[in-house]
Write a protein that binds this DNA or RNA. Structure first.
Length: 417
DNA sequence: CGCTTTTGACCCGCGC
DNA sequence: GCGCGGGTCAAAAGCG
């Protein structure tokens, strides 16, 4: 009996010893992991510091440019005060001002622009989150990029007409605005950003919330065209149209129009900033009086320009000129391109390629304007940096670092040029 | 119950 | 003036 008990005790001792050994080994492994994580974190921290420094430099440059612009603007104002301002000059000036801000309507008064610039300068100290979002716009029209349908919209329109003004083609709608404003309205070039991407789902997940409000079978394409509204904010004028490409059903063509008048979730910022930048490039880069569709192939090769071909982009294909300018961002030629999974990376790569493509088109000037004036770019960086600050996990930090790196390298490249 | 989607009707501009 | 096509509305249906 005693022997049996002794055996059991021995067995238990052996078991305990073994488990102790296991724990010891486990502890050693964990310690190694901890050490390597610590090293990784140190690296990430160093990278973080480097990026912060770079960001500060960019911000400083931005401020300098802002100051220079303000100086020039003030000098111009003084000149104009000395002599009677002709309408043409005034308009030119407005246009110039407008071209320095993404999504700003020429209808904004000079005073408002000064006000906005001052605000931008002030905001340099505090980053704002949210892309393509510009709640501070005071008097804007709605619909195309840079427009807002807020309560201070001074259109006197009702129901459908108002709706048409927001999204439609603005065909001869009569408003009670002054002649001056009407003149501006007719000269406004509206931008639509058409994104072509391979996608096997009904819509591309761009991070934003959309509500479907209509569907139509468009002539020449058996696939129905779906109409979506942004539902993040009830007053948001942004809409998108989604349709499958007739030639390649795996390609989804998404056309965005309008600017979000509310903060966007971070997941939506990549697409919002890209479409915003693309639209800005189109609006300020185009010198033709007639809006001409432009296509950018973002995955290498020379950028493909094509005309308003409904096979590629289902935009209004009436032969008469419309107030819309169109830029097509083609994501379809990259063999690795798929939606979902690596969507975030895709957008980031997309941003980088967008920069490259832009330079290829000798639009560096425009892009520089975008970089220096576009709150969206600042917001992208802001979003990345604040996420880095907020996220404690090393993995998340690393991901955001990658995102930040892509954006910052794009900015660096642009600066070098 | 509230939100979203569906879908036929409607409006509007344009060409003939 | 009429028909066509694009875009939107809004009631009904669907869904969680």
């Amino acid at each position: 009996m005693e022997d049996v008990k002794g055996c059991k005790v021995d067995e238990e001792i052996i078991n305990i010893n073994e488990s102790f050994k296991c724990n010891e080994e486990y502890a050693i492994i964990k310690e190694d992991e901890f050490e390597s994580t610590k090293l990784e974190m140190t690296g990430v921290r160093e990278e973080n510091m480097r990026l912060k420094t770079l960001l500060q430099r960019i911000e400083k440059d931005y401020k300098d440019l802002q100051m220079q612009f303000m100086d020039i603007f003030q000098q111009e104002s003084k000149k104009n005060n000395g002599s009677p301002i002709s309408n043409t000059n005034g308009d030119d000036q407005e246009q110039e001002l407008v071209s320095l801000r993404l999504g700003t309507s020429p209808k904004e008064t000079k005073k408002e622009n000064i006000h906005n610039l001052t605000k931008i300068a002030r905001e340099n100290d505090v980053f704002e989150l949210g892309l393509g979002h510009n709640p501070k716009r005071l008097k804007t029209d709605d619909g195309a990029l840079g427009k807002n349908s807020g309560p201070d919209n001074n259109y006197v329109l009702t129901g459908k007409k108002e709706e048409n003004q927001k999204w439609g083609q603005n065909k001869g709608l009569k408003t009670e605005r002054s002649g001056d404003e009407e003149l501006c309205q007719t000269s406004v070039k509206r931008a639509r950003v058409c994104v072509r991407a391979r996608c096997d789902t009904p819509t591309m997940n761009d991070g934003c919330q959309w509500r479907k409000y209509g569907q139509k079978i468009a002539k020449g394409n058996p696939c129905p065209r779906a109409y979506y509204r942004c539902t993040v904010s009830p007053s948001c004028p942004v809409r998108k149209q989604v349709q499958r490409c007739m030639e390649d059903m795996s390609i989804l063509i998404t056309t965005y129009e309008g600017t979000h008048n509310h903060p966007l979730p971070i997941s939506a910022t990549a697409m919002a900033s890209t479409t915003s930048a693309a639209a800005s490039m189109l609006l300020s880069g185009s010198t033709t009086s007639q809006p001409s569709p432009t296509a950018l192939n973002l995955y290498g090769g020379p950028p493909t320009f094509h005309h308003s071909d409904k096979q590629h982009c289902f935009l209004p294909n009436s032969p008469s000129p419309t107030p819309f300018s169109t830029i097509t961002l083609d994501l379809t030629t990259n063999p690795s391109t798929t939606t979902h999974g690596g969507q975030e990376q895709q957008y980031q790569s997309y941003l980088e390629k967008f920069n490259q493509a832009s330079s290829k088109q000798a639009l560096t000037e425009t892009l520089t304007k975008v970089i220096t004036s576009d709150p969206s770019f600042r917001s992208v960086i802001a979003a990345v940096v604040s996420t880095m600050a907020a996220n404690e996990g090393a993995g998340k930090v690393k991901n955001e670092m990658i995102n930040g790196k892509v954006l910052l390298s794009a900015l660096e490249n642009q600066e070098k040029k």
